[in-house]
């Protein structure tokens, strides 16, 4: 799986994502999408993210890092 495959459907976009993208650089990353990103990560990784992880999730780089920490290397 790639980061685009993971996030594009949630953000309802076809624009490729950059590692340094954040809610500030991507207007489609609103609070609604943010909750969906966390729920999707939990579905995909099969774990419930803890509060530290949720709070620290503020960029595409953080998404990749959380996946990696749970054993999923995004291409």
């Amino acid at each position: 799986m790639t980061i685009d495959q993971l996030l594009q459907p949630i953000l309802k976009t076809k624009e490729p994502l950059r590692t340094d993208d954040t809610p500030q650089t991507r207007p489609e990353w609103d609070s609604f999408a943010h909750v969906n990103i966390i729920a999707t990560l939990e579905d995909t990784l099969g774990v419930e993210l803890n509060t530290t992880e949720v709070v620290s999730l503020t960029s595409v780089a953080d998404v990749i890092a959380i996946c990696k920490a749970h054993g999923l290397n995004l291409a």
């Binding site: 993971l6 459907p9 949630i10 309802k12 969906n36 729920a39 999707t40 579905d43």
Partner: peptide, 8 residues
């Protein structure tokens, strides 16, 4: 269905 499917 994946969550992405449902969102799309």
């Amino acid at each position: 269905l994946s969550r992405a499917d449902r969102i799309v």
